[in-house]
Amino acid sequence: MTALEIRDLHIRRGGIEVVHGIDLTVTAGEITALLGANGAGKSSTVLAVAGIVRDTSGSITADGSGIRGLAPNKVRRAGIATMQEGHRVFSDISVADNLAIAALLLPRAERAEAVESMLDLFPEIHGFADRPAGSLSGGQQQMLALATALAARPRVLVIDEMSLGLAPLVVARLVPALRAVAEQGVGVLLIEQFTSVALELATSVTVLAQGLVTLRAPAKELRDHPERLAAAYRLTEQ
């Protein structure tokens, strides 16, 4: 079942078009990787889906409903959770309250349980529930950011650069957590610069280069033929 569908999406930033009509489908229960070099248009796509960048045309639909151009809070209420680049958390607010803010979307009776279940999902941050989020390590902040995105049970999770700046041990900890999220039926769009993590997790891969889709293939195929991926990164440079 299609959870998120992007059709002919054009994105302009500062009046300049940076993404030129891309198509992308995220299936429920699967991880779709969006890969590409710096400046390929990956983060712009995330920001457009999240409603932060609104100078766009084309269509973005979630479960059949159009979400392009909606304000970020409306996008989130439509079931799309976004985890922004740089393990972004409410740094001067406690870990538990970071989760409580995200859980406000749930009915009142379910909020406390949602916070507790997210702390249980990441025991590494459970002991720091009362500490300001800014006092956590980078890896712990990334776990909190992921937990915050998941707290109100999204149907689609968009993750921008999950592994950026994190130690391999931390990334290894996040990988099974993300896999478990997808197994629960959540469609995941994973944006990564580092292909190894993405290919390990994803079912399908889309590669962007200079704002255009240069490759669409099953992840397994690219694991077996990495030269195809390398070629897709260079495609528009030729």
Binding site: A50, G51, I52, A71, P72, N73, R76, R77, A81, T82, Q84, R88, V89, F90, S91, D92, I93, I101, A102, L104, L105, T148, A149, A152
Partner: peptide, 11 residues
């Protein structure tokens, strides 16, 4: 704390 993040998490 962070207006943009607040909006992104649904506020």
């Amino acid at each position: 704390s962070d207006r943009e993040l607040a909006a992104v998490v649904g506020t």
